[in-house]
Design a protein around this nucleic acid. Structure first.
Lengths: 360, 360
DNA sequence: TTGAAAGCGCTAACAC
DNA sequence: GTGTTAGCGCTTTCAA
């Protein structure tokens, strides 16, 4: 392994000049720069991260903390962040809190404080005040992704959950639906994670604005999985007192569960039941799911952009604390106007229909 | 931020003793140890990773390289590795090669050589000889996960793909199926990734052992996605010359596509068509899919164990170069004996049946 | 079992 | 624009 001295010797300059050249900090005459770069290339020189960090205090490394990885949203955010970091010459150190034991404590008490990170991105985590303090105490910028509202003064990126839910519901209303069910998050999920409530509020807001009474009977809680959505939907569609003609699910995975449940009951989607989700999940297209797209990769990239700006401050005004991220309605084949007679029809004659199946 | 000197002063010992105590290297009298630990705790001292790395040459950090994250297998391996690393006090730095540009080159030419890693885990990547050389040149142990056979002398963890496929096919044979289709990987996927071929060979081996002729007509290539499995299965089931009574898909995602395709054709799974996959994917249970489970989290953990042993050598003999990982048949509701008359029935009378839907 | 002190390989003043 | 040099905060001989 060639060291900086070797490069300096070969280029006929001092180590300081090599450092300045390779790091881009401080002035170097173009001719010198070329000599140094040639020498470095020839020797296959790569700076030692630890030596550089120790001397400069910068690590070129960002920590990303996620609750777990096996979910489309989290892995997409990580993928976006990774891509943006790589572009900037940064490493991404991943902290996965799943396993649900003392992981969280040990990550926040030890791992994040080792001075191996320049900043932290927290995905879908409501940080405690203590955790934020620890991080700020060692001067690490933090940005949150996928958490509503600036939690404890942390910069936060997220879609406006209420607005997205309202928009989804409005889509169903615009198609003429008036009995609209909602498969949302259960109470327990809401403890440190207000997303389910916000989405429910958006749904209710849209109904109220359309002067449609909100009925608790049309809400079924689930756990954001396909199976949860499936089970909730069966409960919703098998009731005797008139099933909804459309369902708004708070996530695409649940929405896909809705579609499968409807099919199993012999109902056609969208003709007997329309279904709309939130996410634009991987599988949404395959199932023909109409959905409110959010763009987690872009959210991950944006989080990195914000941190880069903070770490390499330019003559810029600091942005807002709570950045709303874009979302967009994507219409596929799971939503349509209600059947003329079907809106208030009971669940009696289910057996006639067959599912239409995924598109293609 | 308290430094090692602060701790030494408070504990009334030298910095050398603090270092020895906290790192567990070298002898320390129990009483001294206690004093030091108390002092460190009181000051909230955490060693500086870069200073420690620079002085010792160890980084307590492992690089994990994956082709992309948004797949059940990869994210599970990473999750397992992360858990095991955390337990050992190691960080995990993630390199995601998706984006498919120069990522791969820059990761291998720069990022991995920064001396910020003690070792590398490569997931489902056939490393080039050059890449392996670069890594070995800087003395970094490598272990591969999910790649068949020791590639270029790299220690490798994987299930025996041929054996797993054989076992899956045998399950269908044992149920009495004789016309067994295979939805596998396409030729292009096989370029630097022999898994599809190995699984196909296992399938063919089982048929031959049962003295059943292998028919190319019963093979359909796909791309390891649900949609790919769906489309391949439609082609397989809509042929006029007698459809298979069972399908072996080379992955669970494709197998789920098979199930959905069969349902859309009005065929009942498992009564008209049995389906078996490989993985025990997240969603397998929901779809009632019989599958050959592999355990990617365990594979990730095992990879870490191997590296730990290599990094902290004990009086151990080094293990084998190519470690076969365990797999297991999990029987659910997607496989059953063939209908007496159905095995050779044409595709004409499809319309009678309705899908049974996911379990639950 | 402990302490003194020489680096580890860079970066950033500071001087020129 | 460039060189000299004093650290950055640890670990690890080596001697006691």
């Amino acid at each position: 392994m060639a060291g900086i001295e070797d490069v300096a010797r070969l280029a006929g300059v001092s180590t300081a000049t090599v450092s300045r050249t390779l790091s881009g900090r401080g002035p170097v005459k173009p001719a010198t720069r070329l000599k140094v770069e040639a020498a470095a290339g020839e020797l296959g020189y790569v700076v030692s991260a630890s030596a550089s960090s120790l001397a400069s205090g910068r690590t070129k490394n960002i920590g990303v903390v996620v609750p777990f990885l096996g979910s489309w949203f989290f892995s997409s955010v990580v993928e976006g962040a990774q891509r943006a970091l790589l572009r900037n010459g940064y490493d991404l150190t991943l902290y996965n809190l799943s396993g649900g034991g003392d992981e969280r404590a040990s990550v926040f008490e030890h791992f994040l404080l080792r001075q191996r990170l320049d900043a932290v991105i927290a995905v879908s985590l409501e940080l405690t005040e203590h955790e934020v303090d620890r991080l700020h105490a060692v001067g690490k910028p933090i940005v949150g992704v996928g958490v509503g509202g600036p939690s404890n003064g942390v910069r936060t990126l997220t879609i406006d959950d209420a607005a997205v839910a309202r928009r989804a519901t409005e889509h169903l209303l615009a198609l003429g639906h008036t009995r609209i069910g909602h498969v949302g998050g259960s109470k327990e999920l809401d403890l440190d994670f207000h997303l389910p409530t916000n989405r429910r509020l958006g749904y209710e807001g849209a109904l109220e604005a359309a002067e449609i009474a909100v009925s608790v009977d049309l809400f079924e809680p689930a756990n954001f999985t396909m199976r949860g959505g499936y089970q909730a939907t069966r409960r919703l569609l098998e009731r005797d007192d008139g099933r909804p003609s459309a369902i708004f699910a708070a996530s695409d995975e649940m929405a896909i569960g809705c579609i499968l449940a409807a099919r199993d009951l012999g109902l056609s989607v969208p003709h007997d039941v329309s279904v709309i989700g939130i996410d634009d999940h991987n599988l949404a297209d395959f199932f023909g799911l109409t959905t409110m797209a959010q763009f987690p990769q872009a959210q991950g990239e944006k989080a990195v952009d914000i941190l880069m700006e903070q770490l390499h401050p330019r003559p810029h005004e600091p942005g807002d604390l709570n950045l709303p991220m874009p979302f967009e309605l994507i219409t596929r084949s799971s939503t349509a106007p209600p059947r003329a007679e079907s809106a208030y029809r009971g669940a009696g004659d289910l057996s006639r229909h067959r599912g239409t199946g995924p598109v293609r």
